[in-house]
Amino acid sequence: MERSNISSKFAPELHNMLNILHELQNDNLQNYLSSEDLKWVANYLNTTYSSVYGVAKYYSMFSLTPRGKYIIRVCKSPLCKMIDGEHIIKCIKEKLKIGIGDTTNDSLFTLETSECLGHCAQAPVMMINDKVYKNLNAQKIDKILKSIIK
């Protein structure tokens, strides 16, 4: 992980905290923030470990435990839920044999839920890393997951 890259990109000022945490997490192959990362940020921003931990823990996009290479975020907003969203979550759970918040044994996928992802006209939707998948159904889920696993 290139922390020197971060110090050249962001000034050591507290307001850069979230952008820095995003960057560190994105650079980590296991998509998480290690306690070493948090210590480094605390030191870099001249603040306490606990305040960095408090921020990292508060925001749902940050993880303090290792995750899979692909993070699946299924939208569970009231609208997606109404348009069969729960069935989508059930499908993924069954296919990957994991629960919400879990990572598959091969460290490929982590399943999470998310609040409204802002694609309500094509509900139900999910994101896998940066990509949005819309108008989901069981067949589509199957195809999407297979294309990643292959």
Binding site: S77, P78, E115, C116, G118, H119, C120, A121
Partner: peptide, 10 residues
């Protein structure tokens, strides 16, 4: 933007 059902800003 995070209000459920809203995606105008996006």
């Amino acid at each position: 933007e995070g209000e459920p059902g809203t995606f105008k800003d996006r």
